Computed example of a mutant assay.
Amino acid sequence: MAAYRRNHRPTAASRPGRIRLAAAAAVMSVAAVAALTGCSFAYVEAICSNGEYPVLAVGGTGGSCVKDGEEPPAGTTRYPEGKVPKQVDDKWDLYWTTHTLDENGDIVDAPDAG
Results as ranks from 00 to 15, higher is better:
residue 16 P to A: 12
residue 32 A to H: 04
residue 111 P to W: 04
residue 109 D to N: 14
residue 24 A to C: 10
residue 76 T to F: 02
residue 95 Y to R: 07
residue 36 L to S: 05
residue 73 P to K: 03
residue 101 L to G: 01
residue 37 T to Q: 09
residue 12 A to F: 10
residue 83 K to L: 06
residue 79 Y to G: 00
residue 98 T to E: 09
residue 70 E to C: 07
residue 113 A to Y: 08
residue 60 G to F: 03
residue 32 A to F: 05
residue 114 G to W: 09
residue 68 D to R: 08
residue 94 L to N: 14
residue 22 A to S: 13
residue 4 Y to W: 10
residue 59 G to D: 03
residue 17 G to T: 07
residue 49 S to F: 05
residue 83 K to E: 05
residue 51 G to T: 02
residue 58 V to L: 02
residue 98 T to C: 08
residue 33 V to H: 05
residue 95 Y to E: 04
residue 15 R to C: 06
residue 55 V to A: 00
residue 104 N to D: 15
residue 101 L to F: 03
residue 11 T to H: 12
residue 53 Y to C: 00
residue 35 A to W: 11
residue 97 T to Y: 08
residue 16 P to H: 10
residue 79 Y to C: 02
residue 14 S to P: 08
residue 109 D to S: 10
residue 19 I to L: 13
residue 55 V to I: 06
residue 4 Y to I: 13
residue 91 K to Y: 10
residue 113 A to S: 15
residue 10 P to V: 04
residue 58 V to A: 01
residue 13 A to T: 12
residue 20 R to M: 09
residue 109 D to Q: 10
residue 97 T to N: 11
residue 75 G to F: 04
residue 2 A to K: 09
residue 111 P to N: 03
residue 80 P to W: 00
residue 77 T to L: 02
residue 48 C to I: 01
residue 33 V to F: 07
residue 53 Y to E: 00
residue 108 V to P: 00
residue 65 C to V: 01
residue 57 A to P: 00
residue 28 M to F: 12
residue 54 P to K: 00
residue 65 C to R: 00
residue 68 D to Y: 07
residue 14 S to C: 08
residue 23 A to G: 09
residue 47 I to Q: 02
residue 86 K to A: 13
residue 113 A to W: 06
residue 64 S to A: 12
residue 36 L to T: 10
residue 97 T to S: 13
residue 25 A to K: 08
residue 95 Y to A: 04
residue 88 V to Q: 11
residue 96 W to C: 01
residue 92 W to I: 02
residue 53 Y to V: 00
residue 81 E to R: 10
residue 93 D to N: 10
residue 93 D to P: 04
residue 41 F to N: 11
residue 23 A to K: 13
residue 85 P to N: 02
residue 104 N to S: 15
residue 32 A to N: 05
residue 27 V to A: 15
residue 21 L to R: 14
residue 14 S to K: 13
residue 75 G to M: 05
residue 3 A to Y: 11
residue 33 V to M: 06
residue 46 A to K: 02
residue 105 G to T: 03
residue 27 V to M: 15
residue 102 D to W: 06
residue 17 G to V: 05
residue 32 A to L: 12
residue 113 A to G: 05
residue 97 T to L: 13
residue 86 K to Y: 08
residue 88 V to L: 09
residue 98 T to L: 09
residue 33 V to C: 06
residue 56 L to W: 00
residue 57 A to M: 07
residue 79 Y to N: 03
residue 74 A to W: 04
residue 112 D to H: 10
residue 12 A to T: 11
residue 29 S to F: 14
residue 28 M to S: 15
residue 6 R to T: 12
residue 54 P to S: 07
residue 57 A to F: 02
residue 8 H to T: 14
residue 114 G to V: 09
residue 101 L to T: 01
residue 62 G to T: 05
residue 92 W to M: 02
residue 5 R to K: 15
residue 81 E to G: 06
residue 101 L to R: 01
residue 2 A to S: 12
residue 88 V to W: 08
residue 13 A to K: 11
residue 62 G to I: 04
residue 66 V to Y: 01
residue 86 K to R: 10
residue 87 Q to G: 04
residue 98 T to G: 07
residue 97 T to M: 12
residue 16 P to G: 11
residue 57 A to L: 05
residue 3 A to L: 13
residue 62 G to A: 14
residue 67 K to M: 08
residue 95 Y to P: 01
residue 66 V to P: 00
residue 62 G to S: 12
residue 102 D to N: 15
residue 45 E to F: 10
residue 76 T to L: 02
residue 24 A to G: 13
residue 8 H to Y: 13
residue 103 E to A: 13
residue 3 A to I: 13
residue 104 N to Q: 15
residue 5 R to T: 13
residue 18 R to W: 11
residue 70 E to P: 03
residue 85 P to L: 05
residue 22 A to Y: 11
